[in-house]
Structures are given as C-alpha cells and as structure tokens.
C-alpha cells in the first residue's frame, strides 16, 4: 500500500492513539518510584511538584493512577476487541457464506443478543463474578459486543458470495473451510480491521461504564474506576477537579483516537470517500496543459521539417 493513500486525518488519529498507548505502556516504566499502593499525601491534595495531578481520596498520586488506568483500559480494549471481532467474524462469515438454515439460526441468535440491552447483560454477568480481573472484564465485554459485528460481517460475506471466484473454488473441489479462509475472508480484511478498531473503542467505553457502576476490575485501577472513586468521594463538591478531569480527558482521547482511526481507515480503503483538493487539481491541469502544448509544438515543428 502506498503511503500517499493515507490522509492527514489518519495521521492525526494514529498520533493520538500512539500518544495514549505510550503513556499507558511506557509511562509506568519511565516514572518509577510510585505505584498503586504508594500514598503520597492526604485526601484530595491539590497538584504540586510532589504529585503533578494531585492526590485521590486515599492520598494516591493521580498521575500514577492515570498511567496504570490507561494501561488497564487499553488492555481491556485490545483483549475484548480481539475476542469480539473473532466471534463476530466467524459467526458472520459462516452465516453469510453458508446461507440457508445455518444462516437463519446464527442470525436468530445474533438478533436475540442484539435485542437484549448490552449494559444489562454486562451488569448481570459482572455481578455474578466474585472477583474480576482485567482479563475477565474484557471477556465479559467481548461476549456481549460481538453481535453487531456478526451482522455487519454477514452482509459483507453475502456480497462476496455472489462473486464468481467462489464458484471456481467449489469447482476446484475446495472445501468450505478453505473457501472461507482463502476466498471470503481476504476480501473482507480491510473491513475486519475497521471493525476491530471500533470494537476496541467500544470495549474501552464499556469498561468505563461498568467501572463507574462499581463493577470494574476488582484489583488494580482503570480510568472508569478512577471516576467511580472520584464520584463516590464527592470530588466535585470538594472542587477536586484533578480527581475527575484527567481520567475524563484521557478516556475521551482514547475513544476519539480509535473512532477517528476507524473512520480515516474507511477513507483509505474506500478512496471514493476522499475529496480532491481544488488547488492540487488546478495545478495538475495547468501542468498537463503545458505538456500538451509542448507536445503540439513538437509535432508541428516535426511535420514542418
């Protein structure tokens, strides 16, 4: 793929995502000396040289919590995104390619899942679990967020199914698994990548919602848990903005970054959505005209000689 196909939107999105990812992964390695158990002050100390973003309700450093919280949110996003995309793509592709009763059964299951509000299922499963690790929260989110992927992928797979190369594959004796893996999936790859990115941002927001309700990971922290404690300890009434503004900004950046990445990938994979800039166009025409005139002059002088 040539680099010229990427738009500036794509680079902005990628920049935000990288920034957040560096903060969450390299941050804890660079700013050592404090961890989640270190108490650096009292209840809601204002930002200072000792605690850049102040302290939370238990006197922990908010900056340290923000790094670890971002990391948990990203881990939840990636694990959940991978699982949800995998389930959605498998269900959608099999339904779309095989068709018939298989399709009807799979889609009926998908539609039932879609009809039940996701947050209710999330809350019920989360309540049922005694202890919740980051991974188990990710899995809980994944099993409730795949259905729309399955629906969307099924539509894509059905449209690929009408291509003649699938008939050629069948006439070549290829079995269903081989056809799905080699003939259907590659045609949807760009779509699957976009779905994955979107699933990450959905998972991060779902985790925040669960944590806000107090159903997030029971160990460590996350952006949602920070907000949960900030709410529970009335940081707003205490004017302790440093307790809730940083995680909110970080959450917005993560979600915005991934959403922007998804929509700019759409432009990359689907060039029709891009807009030509007028200046570039006129410049091209001007240069083409000069070239045409030069060629004309050359032919005239050539035939004259």
């Amino acid at each position: 793929m040539k680099l010229s196909r990427f738009t500036s939107r794509f680079y902005v999105a990628l920049g935000i995502v990288f920034l957040v990812a560096f903060f969450g992964t390299l941050g804890p390695l660079l700013f050592t000396g404090k961890d989640l158990t270190t108490v650096v002050g009292g209840l809601y100390d204002a930002p200072s040289g000792k605690a850049w973003l102040g302290t939370d309700n238990l006197g922990h450093d908010v900056f340290t919590y923000l790094m670890y919280g971002t990391r948990s949110s990203l881990i939840v996003g990636v694990i959940s995104g991978l699982i949800a995309t995998f389930i959605g793509v498998v269900v959608g592709t099999v339904a779309g390619y095989v068709g018939g009763a298989v399709e009807e059964t799979l889609m009926a299951a998908t539609n039932i899942m879609l009809a039940i509000p996701q947050i209710v299922v999330l809350v019920l499963i989360s309540v049922a679990l005694d202890s919740r690790s980051v991974t188990s929260v990710a899995i809980v989110i994944a099993v409730t967020s795949w259905p729309w992927t399955a629906r969307a992928v099924r539509a894509q797979a059905s449209s690929v199914r009408t291509r003649e190369h699938l008939d050629i594959a069948r006439l070549s004796g290829a079995n269903t698994v081989s056809i799905i893996v080699f003939d259907v999936l590659p045609y949807m790859l760009s779509y699957v990548v976009m779905v994955f990115v979107l699933q990450i941002s959905i998972a991060i927001l779902s985790e925040a919602a669960l944590s806000l309700l107090g159903l997030g990971p029971s160990e460590g922290t996350s952006l949602g848990l920070m907000l949960h404690w900030a709410l529970a300890w009335e940081s707003v009434r205490n004017s302790a903005w440093w307790a809730f503004v940083p995680p909110t900004i970080m959450l917005t950046m993560v979600a915005f970054g991934f959403l922007l990445l998804q929509s700019s990938l759409d432009e990359v994979f689907n060039p029709r959505l891009r807009r030509d800039s007028g200046r570039k166009r006129r410049k091209r025409i001007a240069s083409a005209r000069t070239a045409a005139e030069a060629a004309e002059a050359a032919t005239t002088s050539g035939s004259g000689a």
Partner: peptide, 16 residues
C-alpha cells in the same frame, strides 16, 4: 465437467 464463467474479473481471487 468444468466451467468458464462470464466475468473475467470476479472469477479470479485477486489474492491468488
């Protein structure tokens, strides 16, 4: 029994 179809573009898997 083998076949050739109408569309020489969609009959190919473009990744092969």
């Amino acid at each position: 029994v083998q076949a050739v179809f109408q569309d020489p573009f969609s009959a190919f898997n473009q990744f092969f």
